[in-house]
Amino acid sequence: MELDKIERLLEKYFEADTTVAEEKLLQRYFSKDDIPENLQQYVALFKFMDNAKEERFSKEVVLEPETRGAGNSLYKWMSIAAAVMLMFGVYLGKNYYDEKELEQQQALYAYNETKKALDMLSHNMERGTEKIGYLNEFVVAKEKIYNKK
């Protein structure tokens, strides 16, 4: 009767219809020594699965907590700081450049204004001298009159 049950379980097992508990039952059954001849071929299968559970991970894993973590974060912060400094530097540089530019523009404007003022001055001066030319004419005419006498 037990054999009957085992055979039924085996059938379910190969259809993947067994529960974990039923599979444990099979496992236990096949770990016994007196397995009937017609089930012998399954012994190796269950023994293999049973043995496979025994395998252990034996390698020592070295976790480097503080040093690795700290190193990582230090590096991270350093790069962030460097990036910030760079951006700040660019910003300052741009400001400085803008200031210079503005100064130059102002200087150019002042120069142009001054030039304009001087131009106006010289223009007016010229007009003044023109008028003085007429005065000269008067002197010449006067000379003529005097010389005729």
Binding site: Y13, F14, E15, A16, Q40, Q41, Y42, A44, L45
Partner: peptide
């Protein structure tokens, strides 16, 4: 998962029976 499991178990079984 069930299909793959059933298939795998059957393959192992068939080869074992052959060998046996």
């Amino acid at each position: 998962v069930r299909v793959a499991l059933s298939r795998a178990r059957k393959t192992v079984r068939d080869k074992l029976i052959k060998k046996h």
